[in-house]
Amino acid sequence: MPPPDIIALLDAHFGSKIKDRKADAIDAFVVVAPEDLLAVCRYLRDEAPLLFDILNCISGIDYLELDPKKAPKAGFEPHVEVVYHMSSFNHRHRFTLKLILPRWKDNKPGELPEAPSVTGLWHSADWHEREVYDLCGVWFDGHPDLRRILLSEDWIGHPLRKDYEFPLEYHGMRGR
């Protein structure tokens, strides 16, 4: 099924819950709110014409322009995106879902933004969500075991955040 038809199907079923859509991109995507994510994902996985039975990847992106001169021209407000790539073995089509989150929950630095976990739908989401949590700092609500996966467990901060600062010292080793 070509991506515009998938988007039309989602629009017909969810209506105003689909916040944004782009059908002519290479990876056609829709944007949903975090509270609607599970419903949309379940629909995408279980509906007969869609049957997205594999979640390929979850990525986290930090949108932030640190330079105050460039910030007005950057073309985006500071936010964090979580991108879900999924595909179907039966129908051989793929699709992308995006989640737009604030950089910090309630605008308090250090409070991680929250997204619902999709581990209940796709088991492959387990480690992907751990990785996004580890490097990009998104808290996945309902994840069975949300720990750091790549960095050591006592690491401070989330390195792929744009405003991350390198550690000066780690267990007695000079950092830079």
Binding site: W155, P159, P167, R176
Partner: peptide
């Protein structure tokens, strides 16, 4: 490299 030791002589 945020997590790479800058030379193993620091270790």
């Amino acid at each position: 490299g945020y997590n790479v030791v800058k030379g193993v002589d620091l270790v």
